[in-house]
Design a binder for these strands. Sequence first.
DNA 1: AGTGCGGCCTGTCCGC
DNA 2: TGCGGACAGGCCGCAC
Length: 271
Amino acid sequence: MPELPEVETTRRGIAPHVCGQTIENVILRTDKLRFPIPANVQRDLRGKQFTEVARRGKYLLLSATNGTAIIHLGMSGKLRIVNSRLTPIKHDHVDIVFANQQCLRFNDPRRFGALLWTTDDPLQHSLLSKLGPEPLTREFNGHYLFTKSRQRKAPVKAFIMDSHVVVGVGNIYATEALFKAGIHPKRAAGRISEARYIKLTKAIKVILRAAIKQGGTTLKDFLNSDGKPGYFKQRLNVYGRAGEPCLDCGTTLKSLQLGQRTSVYCPSCQR
DNA sequence: AGTGCGGCCTGTCCGC
DNA sequence: TGCGGACAGGCCGCAC
């Protein structure tokens, strides 16, 4: 489940291998991802080079001279650098083949991912233009969340998972950050003090940074073909631990449903 | 405008 | 052992 740290790890992993390589071909084995893959990606990318791999939220932006490929990994998407002659396995939907015979291979079993193509400024694309700030910038701070949340009745967990509020905070990190900040996931966003939002934004940053650092240790895996991600093994305090004791106080962790999301929390530490 | 939910998918796990 | 069903999850798009 790629969250922001995995997307950032992917970005760092693929960038050196795709930038400056001439694109020989684009192979689409299916176009049925979250959105249909536009057919003109093939024609437009052939013969071009990517100059940069950037990230906005969980979107990867692969810029060529004539446009930008926008990739989202969805739930189960993976990008790997493999030799283009390596036989594709199940759910290898797209290859971007380079002249040096390496290729960027997109595998996505659940097909919640996306590959789009725009010739305009990608940040103006309708999927990206209304996104909230990046969580690891100074712009994202307690004051921002406090101001933004006034009058909001939605649970704070839904609020911080809303990409129009802040990008890149998925279920795992929202769950962990709320635990670290001692805030109950169901508390109305508009009824949380600025002091607590300061604590929460700090928790989000600490957790995301730690996860990115962990991802960074296994970038070499991007050249392997065995599909083992290997990163992202940091200790989770609450996520997936419902029914087990809180590591801080020993109280049995509970879980509740918010929207379609499972939230695990400590009923004693989180208020 | 804010809120909440349906739907897209398939692999994994559980119970019968 | 085989099978059905529940579940997981990001996020768009719609309805209220």
